[in-house]
């Protein structure tokens, strides 16, 4: 319980502290601090319209954050979410195009499978390179992003190109029947449900299964894990696969719920934003949900700030950056505050 309190109180305090620093910037730029903060709140969470705006932006971040968060639990810093998302979206498109005409439920399920498998394989390769060849996983996953984007560009400018898309080269469409719909009468697409379910599921796997415990053990002390007989290599590769699978699913959702065909819009930076979410959430799949919503909200409020105060888009990037740094720095406080220690258990 004390641990839980600590993990709520410290990020909250960090958030408040970041807002204070941010207020300094706003005041310096000559704007009314309270009005700007109120506008951020209004743009992110102030109405049902804003909530939809926020949730739509948060949905892909939940999945791409898992691509960094899961491998990080086993001690690997992977930043290849963007590439896995592109590959997942591309393979899902290929599947959708080739199965177009069959029953939509079958097509959509197949697209999801191919997104998950290809994205998973993409990051599993990073894990394998690390385990068998000792290739630095951060570098290899970053470079794989560029390879994924190059493959995407190659295919949409060549083999997959729909000749009708003259000035915005795109693949053939997957067909309207095979698109994912929105949730009820809202404008939020089904991707949000996928994000919530997958985060919950992976939280369960991490916290409540032997497999999850083994992963944390590898991350905690890889020698100890080896000595206790864990199949470290296999576990690392499986973890990477799961992370990549989540990002691949995000790619599939971008195609099936938003674009309907593959083009350069698939590579919109969600993979990189997911890294930020994973770090702030301290690699906890459940914490990813509120953090993704917070970040989605900040992004959603950018529009209102620009339109109402003539502030540049960079304003919300500054806020994002401040929050990121303060929350990372606040990691040093864990376990040092007496308020959160069980009574009678003084150091």
């Amino acid at each position: 319980m004390h641990n839980f309190m600590e993990s709520i109180a410290i990020p909250t305090a960090a958030l408040v502290f970041s807002l204070l620093i941010f207020s300094g910037f706003v005041a310096f730029s000559g704007n009314n601090v309270l009005e700007v903060l109120a506008a951020i709140y209004q743009g992110a969470f102030g109405s049902w319209f804003s909530w939809q705006n926020t949730l739509v932006r948060a949905a892909p971040l939940m999945l791409t954050a898992l691509c960094t968060a899961l491998p990080a639990r086993s001690g690997l810093i992977i930043i290849g979410g963007e590439g896995a998302m592109v590959v997942g979206g591309l393979c899902a498109t290929l599947t959708g195009i080739s199965l177009n005409g069959l029953p939509p439920f079958f097509v959509i399920s197949s697209m999801a499978c191919s997104g998950v498998l290809s994205g998973g394989a993409w990051i599993a390769a990073v894990g394998a390179l690390k385990h068998y060849r000792n290739v630095n996983e951060t570098i290899s996953s970053l470079l794989l992003n560029y390879i994924a984007i190059a493959i995407l560009n190659f295919l949409i400018l060549g083999l997959l190109r729909d000749p009708a898309t003259l000035n915005k080269p795109s693949s053939f469409p997957i067909g309207d029947a095979n698109m994912l719909g929105t949730i009820g009468t809202t404008s939020i697409h089904a991707g949000l449900i996928f994000g919530l379910v997958v985060c919950g599921l992976l939280w369960f796997v991490i916290r409540r299964t032997t497999f999850g415990f083994s992963i944390d053990m590898i991350g905690g002390n890889i020698r100890a894990a080896q000595i206790s007989g864990l199949a470290v290599g296999k576990l690392i590769i499986i973890t990477c696969f799961l992370g990549g699978a989540a990002a691949g699913l995000a790619g599939m959702i971008e195609i099936a719920a938003v674009h309907g065909r593959a083009n350069t819009s698939l590579n919109a930076g969600y993979g990189y934003a997911g890294i930020l979410v994973a770090f702030i959430a301290r690699y906890n799949p459940l914490a990813i949900i509120p953090v993704a919503i917070l970040l989605g909200g900040i992004r959603a409020s950018s529009g209102l700030l620009q339109r109402s105060f003539d502030l540049p888009d960079a304003t919300t990037l500054v806020l994002q950056g401040i929050i990121f740094i303060v929350i990372l720095a606040s990691g040093a406080v864990y376990g040092r505050l007496n308020w959160f220690k069980p009574k009678g258990d003084s150091p």
Binding site: V56, H259, S265, A268, G303, Q306, R307, P312
Partner: peptide
């Protein structure tokens, strides 16, 4: 106006 708006659902 708004800048840096990606060609996605955003």
């Amino acid at each position: 106006d708004e800048e840096n708006v990606p060609e996605t659902i955003e």
